[in-house]
């Protein structure tokens, strides 16, 4: 369970998060949605202790993120930020292998190699393993980063806009994979999404943010409603059930 209590964040005088309190239960896929500048990424960074906590309290599985040793947290929580530039000249297999670092701290075991191979397979990277990261397309690179995050094998997976640059096939593949690991392995996925329909069809719960505050949080069907969506995004859109799937018609 991820518990956020009274978290505020100010950067350079402007307020990014305003007294956010939120509980993300263990297991299942929770999607964070909201317009640009709502504070979704900042909240994710705070949970993942990438940024020091200014006020409030965040715990993951009962461990406070600001005082628990980073290494211990790395075994239960993995984070993929939006576009983390990889400066180092690395091959795909090496990059993905870094996901195992919290477990082996330098020396890869046979089990690590097994997990790395499975992760490469999972994200359709087997053909790309010997390639250097800087020779890949944006989408391929994104897949390698997601594979690295999965390799970490943590109970909690935090993903910031992981569908960036992915084509429809790989975006669907990623969302289905997230769904599967949540269902079969009881993982907790917290994911920032911009495509509201991906959120509507794959997430168990949706947290909607706007202007640094949580405006709605609950089961997917309770949040994907025309009135709530309009209050967040500022325009009206239709919500339909098509073949039993919630679908937001926002193109009109």
């Amino acid at each position: 369970m991820i518990e956020i209590a009274g978290v505020s964040l100010a950067l350079g005088g402007s307020r990014i998060l305003d007294n956010v309190s939120l509980t993300v239960p263990k297991g299942g896929v929770t999607a964070l949605v909201g317009p640009n500048g709502a504070g979704k990424s900042s909240l994710l960074s705070l949970i993942a202790r990438l940024r020091p906590l200014q006020s409030g309290r965040i715990t993951v599985d009962g461990l406070p993120v600001d005082t628990t040793p980073s290494r211990q947290l790395a075994k239960i929580m993995a984070i993929l930020r939006q576009d983390p530039g990889v400066a180092s000249r690395l091959r795909v297999v090496e990059l993905v292998g870094f996901g195992r670092f919290p477990h082996h701290r330098g020396r890869l075991t046979a089990k690590d190699h097994e997990i790395i191979a499975a992760s490469l397979e999972q994200f359709d990277l087997s053909d790309l393993t010997p390639r250097f990261i800087d020779t890949l397309s944006g989408g391929q690179r994104q897949r390698a980063l997601v594979a690295m995050t999965f390799c970490q094998g943590t109970d909690y997976i935090l993903l910031d806009e992981p569908l960036n640059n992915l084509d429809m096939f790989h975006a669907r593949n990623l969302m289905r994979t997230l769904r599967r690991i949540a269902d079969e392995h009881g993982k907790t996925v917290l994911i920032v999404l911009h495509d509201i329909n991906h959120a509507a069809s794959y997430a168990d719960r949706i947290v909607a943010m706007k202007d640094g505050a949580v405006v709605a949080s609950g089961q997917t069907a309770d949040v994907i409603r025309p009135d709530i969506l309009e209050s967040i995004f500022g325009f009206s859109m239709r919500v339909e059930h098509i073949d039993g799937r919630l679908t937001v018609l926002h193109h009109a």
Partner: peptide, 22 residues
């Protein structure tokens, strides 16, 4: 520290995510 240095070269955020107390 050679392995930690390898992780640091992935960038600050990634290194923290992988458990390095940056």
């Amino acid at each position: 520290a050679r392995h930690i240095l390898d992780v640091l070269s992935l960038g600050t955020d990634t290194a923290i995510g992988l458990g390095v107390a940056w």
